[in-house]
Amino acid sequence: MKSLTAARTAGDGQDLVTTLGGHAVPLRARSAVMLVLISIAGLAMFCWPLLTHHDASGSAHVTDAPIIFAVTLPLLVFVILAEFADGGMDSKALAMLGVLSAVDAALRPTGGGTGGIETVFFLLILAGRVFGPGFGFVLGCTSLFASALITAGVGPWLPFQMLCSAWIGMGAGLLPRRVRGTREIVMLIGYGIVSAYLFGALMNLYSWPFLAGADISGHANLAYSSAYSLLENLHRFGVYTLVTSTGGWDTGRAITNAVAIAVLGRPVLVVLRRAARRASYDLVRSAD
């Protein structure tokens, strides 16, 4: 409504001035509240094996939980995406998101995830850095979704991957803004490494109960058990993730991120910033 009133005051005698500026996907207070709530719920859905407190007998719900969550999480992700879209995403932001998602999806096969060479995140981190947390969050979701559609990889794991990479994109947008130059690249490399391991750990946490199974009979085989305490389960998970993936995929991913940002960080940031300048968002209309 703001824009219409502004236009009306810009009557015949006066100039109509539109200035450009602002964020591609603005993070409003309401969006932020929803984002926090969904992040809490989403994190719990990742970590449920660690959080369960059941008597050994009442394990019926335990098998239900992942299925229920697999149905619920997409809904939550959709809620927050709809909120961002409603909060003033204009066509420029939308086109930019679409094109960057496509580039991201195109980069993915070059790594193919083999040996942990996962090239999705470096562009996500850089774009989140340039366009801000809201954009980073949405890009994280859409680029994984698009690449899942292209490679026919839609499944219950997809919402979890989307949320995870959305956090990575958002986090990149929340890094201190004033750091520039070499220090910025160093900071982003650090973030890339941390986020690679975090992504690995979270996705492992997601697949842990499925791959290692539930330890119902109380034997030690690296599976979670609802009878154990949080700490004990965490310990088991720690060992699980260390043996299964930290040495391989996660480290590969971290190295990919670090190398990609070190090598391509500066030129890609320049390209993205140039685009951001040319396609500034949010028309601020005024009459003078």
């Binding site: 824009s3 219409l4 236009a7 009306r8 810009a10 015949d12 006066q14 100039d15 109509l16 001035v17 539109t18 200035t19 450009l20 420029k92 500034s280 028309l283």
Partner: peptide, 24 residues
């Protein structure tokens, strides 16, 4: 111009009775 590109417009553009000032 100027709704999408940004900029300063003075005068009027009227197409089929619609002024672009009031209509993005």
């Amino acid at each position: 111009v100027p709704h999408f590109t940004g900029g300063r417009l003075s005068g009027n553009v009227v197409v089929a009775g619609m002024d672009t000032r009031d209509h993005p």
